[in-house]
């Protein structure tokens, strides 16, 4: 075989491979593999699973190859737009998985979020823009229907908007706070936060801090936490005791802080029962119990691809509708046809 012949031979082999990659049968195989992949993803723990990634990538290859070789795509505009939009969806989902962030943070009433997340799960290419963000919580109310069924949450927050001005807003449930693309949602995690001021004996600046007790009413009977006084090695165990019924199952109620309460503080062998204003004197300094506040847990979500994903998905739906409209309007379903093909 001459060089030219072998060149032609290899080129036509390439073309054949491309046609195969773009074939309808391969598309069906990919769809079936995706079906299996979805079941695997559903049953497994991790979200991004090879069983999903492989069929999606293979589908993307199939779409590209089809676009290059399939004669139908050369003629039918809306059908091609639909498949291109699907390809865009796959690409955007991939980009989103590389750069997303999910996390959680807790903020006490009157305190602020300062860029540090309590839990964090992110894609490999997610930056750390969140470290520069901050907002303050001004307290929240949560309505409860009879039977302790949670209703609307309203949380007033303050932040600097894009123009640099201080703005306050009420967020809750479906209304997140959106800062630089990061979405902060109030969650059902919320609870009580006894607040202390630590006066170091060495005469440093008094520090104010809040201890977030386990979520209420989820951990109604475990309102205790062990924590360490900052700057020392002193371990403190704190428990909140109160008689008041915060959420009455017999009527519509609201989440509120207990009025009369006891704060049990245990350090080593010693035990105190504190009221607001009382202090505990330690060798390292004085721990003053200031009072009880609430804390709110937020879930954080970041994915910049969402608007484009929505645009692509809508483009897919509408272009498919357009395609079917044209196709079905051209021939009535009840008329005899000669060849029976339905491409």
């Amino acid at each position: 075989m001459s060089v030219a012949d072998s060149a032609i031979g290899s080129r036509s082999a390439g073309v054949r491979l491309l046609r195969l990659a773009g074939s309808l049968k391969f598309a069906l195989i990919n769809l079936a593999a995706l079906f299996v992949g979805v079941c695997v993803a559903y049953l497994s723990d991790s979200r991004t699973v090879w069983a999903l990634v492989v069929p999606l990538a293979s589908s993307a290859v199939n779409l590209l190859a089809a676009m290059l070789t399939n004669a139908v795509f050369r003629r039918q505009l809306p059908l091609l737009v639909f498949h291109l939009a699907l390809l865009a969806v796959i690409v955007l989902v991939a980009l989103g998985r590389l750069t997303y962030l999910k996390g959680a943070a807790e903020v006490v009433d009157g305190g602020s979020f300062d860029g540090v997340l309590a839990t964090r799960e992110a894609g490999p290419f997610h930056g750390d823009a969140i470290a520069a963000l901050s907002f303050a919580s001004h307290g929240f109310t949560i309505d409860y229907a009879p039977g302790i069924r949670r209703g609307a949450t309203r949380n007033e927050v303050a932040f600097r908007n894009a123009a640099g001005r201080l703005e306050t807003r009420i967020i809750g449930d479906q209304q997140p706070l959106v800062l630089a693309g990061y979405r902060f949602y109030t969650s059902h995690n919320k609870g009580f936060a006894p607040t202390f001021v630590w006066h170091p004996a060495a005469g440093g600046v008094p520090q104010l801090g809040a201890v977030h007790l386990p979520a209420y009413p989820l951990h109604e009977y475990r309102q205790a936490r062990e924590w360490v006084i900052p700057g020392t090695a002193t371990v403190v165990w704190t428990m909140l005791q109160f008689q008041e019924i915060i959420l009455d199952p017999d009527k519509a109620d609201q989440f509120k802080l207990p009025g009369e309460h006891d704060l049990v503080v245990r350090i080593g062998e010693q035990r105190w029962q504190l009221q607001p204003g009382m202090s505990v004197s330690l060798p390292a300094g004085r721990l003053e119990y200031v009072g009880l506040r609430g804390w709110m847990g937020y879930t954080v979500f970041y994915d910049w691809t969402i608007p484009w994903l929505l645009a692509a998905a809508l483009a897919a739906a509408f272009s498919l509708g357009w395609h079917y409209w044209r196709k079905f309007a051209a021939r009535p379903w009840n008329r005899e046809q000669d060849d029976g093909t339905t491409a």
Binding site: L77, L84, P307, A311, A315
Partner: peptide
Amino acid sequence: RADVRPLAVALTALVVIGGGWLLN
């Protein structure tokens, strides 16, 4: 007949990029 592929690519790009920017 005409080849719709360039137009399809242009149209899809316009809708996805422009639509996404607006939704953003």
